[in-house]
Design a protein around this nucleic acid. Structure first.
Lengths: 347, 347
DNA sequence: GCTATTAAATGGAACGTTCCAATAAATCAA
DNA sequence: TTGATTTATTGGAACGTTCCATTTAATAGC
């Protein structure tokens, strides 16, 4: 009947006519108490509207069952899917993940990290915000808290990372474009303060070199990793003297922007200009034309990251191996007719 | 430096040569301590790698600065945007929101709610999972915790709700369709265990009646609120003896599915069959054809909900007024040529 | 009947904070 | 000087749990 002050274990004890220790034992499902007593206690718990105070408990136990997931952009379905993947495995491990969004803001990230620590989380999975300084994680490392990075890494840091094989993904996509006969290629979107950017751009560059595209026949346009960014990139690139005929985009979002901008200019994505995305979000297959993209299995990587975290917590270590997830190119319609359907005239 | 055991306020006190009370005062920025002392203490805090234990503090203070946001589907951009809107206002109020995803699973929701309560949150904003029983919130109500529902409401519950004007939105959309000359209309997607469903369907029904469409010329197909669901709905509807020529969809996701299914049948959305969505997610304007949809301003509603929560916490009440957000129909290309560009031949 | 053994329940200290009441030191009024 | 006032600091109790060491009750062995 909801008395004003919050009910505690002592209220239950009084109600049930036992000691607080007995109640505590019941709460943790100990087999030491007589079944009838347990029933009586559980009834009292129900009656007084008790809610367990985990903060008080952690004061003694020191080991909480919550872990924090710090995500740089929840509105990007790519990261949302990753988060959901993580949740799945934590749930079945009886761990409650709390998600916090940083909106790519390092200051916000700092706050969020602090809060999560104060709350006494058992571990942290972080997809760092753009522009994060590695100093931000020193404190967590010295605190001995298990931390793993997902999707993104920091330049010089010993924190384990779960991420896709960005280099190879970019390589595959670039090779695909070249295989379609394109000779002037662009790399659109992203910015150089992201390690991922260098990985993907590196794959692009290496594929170009290996397959005989001169560096002067490539153009790299940095930009926001959003539709808006993609639109801007295309505009910049097409203004060049010898504009590219195909682009590898940092991101699916950028790719969508590029396709939009193409249409606006009366150009048909696929036929007049080839575009490849990266991440393969669900929308990719539903766009017109369907986007060819590098699939990275974000949910799978999320699950992987969660498993690594669980293992770290279990073995009370702060070290773990990096995991580089396999990628594969999903060929759809945004680079022109599909190879299988072709007679093979693409040089 | 990282000594093994976690540093406490007493370690700092020892390090700085003051009492624990002094450290506590410094921690909460009290003006009572001499500046030089404060500096000394702050240095010690840094040196020992101290992390504040909010659990212990809450044991005395009882008022925490974290609130929980329980979201039914984070992978739906509509809800993700709402969450981000909430975050914005909480951030500037110095409150840390923890997000938890229920994936439309009432059992999961129960767990998440329990965890959040145990963690001692100051309030809860919930977008209830499908099939939530109102009993799930009784406990929270009796615990005297401020709770507000966002976007969705429960059948018989006195918890304040922040939601769009679903009835009016559906009415507007339906009227638009009828104004375009359609005489056989469909309502696609959603299921009757959602209150929102009844609101939107009600608007649809009322508009039909008011504007002279007989009930037998309408068809209502329940279905998943996803692309997949939309595809299924269209298939069902077109199999009818006198199939509809236009549809109001429960959801943008459903609408995307319907457009996809139309294309697969060689029908052109807009020209051969009109479709209107609901929610107006960002993708709506980027699809081909761009989707006409009822804009509900999810981020704005999120902000509104957060403000209501803030006010409730401040005034330590558990009551608040409902807020019904204005909606408006954003006319794009999925219902055929735009009125303004027309000569007016649509009957 | 008496002691051993097992089973069930309990009191008390500890966890890391906050905050009240108390002290100590410095300043002021006379 | 003495007492009053202000400023800065401090000890200790309390918050709601857990868990160890103990007590109490029940059962068994002889």
């Amino acid at each position: 009947m909801a008395s004003r002050a919050k009910a505690t274990i002592l209220d239950i004890a009084r109600e049930a006519g036992v000691s607080k220790s007995t109640v505590s034992l019941v709460l943790q499902g100990s087999g030491l108490i007589r079944p009838e007593t347990a029933v009586k206690v559980r009834k009292a718990i129900e009656d007084v509207g008790y809610v367990y105070n985990r903060g008080a408990a952690n004061l003694r136990k020191a080991h909480s069952n919550v872990i924090g997931m710090v995500i740089n952009d929840l509105t990007n379905p790519f990261f949302a899917e990753m988060a959901v993947g993580m949740e799945r495995v934590f749930q079945s491990a009886g761990i409650v993940p709390f998600i916090a969004n940083t909106a790519e803001n390092p200051v916000r990230q700092e706050e969020v990290l602090k809060s999560l620590m104060e709350q006494g989380v058992a571990g942290l999975i972080v997809s760092p915000a753009r522009g994060t300084t590695s100093g931000a994680f020193r404190r967590l490392e010295t605190a001995g808290l298990p931390v793993v990075f997902a999707m993104r890494r920091l330049p010089e840091s010993r924190i384990p990372v779960i991420a896709p094989d960005n280099h190879r993904g970019a390589w595959l996509a670039t090779a695909h474009l070249i295989g379609k006969g394109h000779r002037r290629l662009a790399f659109f979107g992203g910015s150089s303060d992201l390690v991922v950017y260098h990985e993907r751009l590196g794959g692009f560059r290496e594929a170009c070199e290996a397959l005989g595209i001169a560096k002067r026949d490539t153009i790299v346009v940095e930009g926001e990793t959003s539709r808006k960014g993609g639109i801007a990139c295309l505009d910049t690139a097409l203004a060049a003297a010898e504009p590219p005929t195909a682009a590898l985009c940092f991101n699916d979002a950028v790719a969508f922007g590029v396709m939009l901008a193409l249409r606006k200019r009366g150009l048909e994505p696929g036929a007049d200009f080839a575009v490849v995305g990266f991440d393969d979000v669900i929308e990719a297959q539903h766009y017109m034309p369907a986007l060819t993209s590098v699939a990275v299995d974000s949910a799978g990587l999320g699950e992987r990251a969660a498993h690594v975290m669980l293992k770290m917590i279990q073995s009370r270590t702060t070290r773990a191996e990096d995991h580089i997830g396999a990628v594969n190119l999903v060929v759809r319609d945004s680079c022109g007719p599909n190879r299988r359907a072709e007679t093979g005239d693409a040089a």
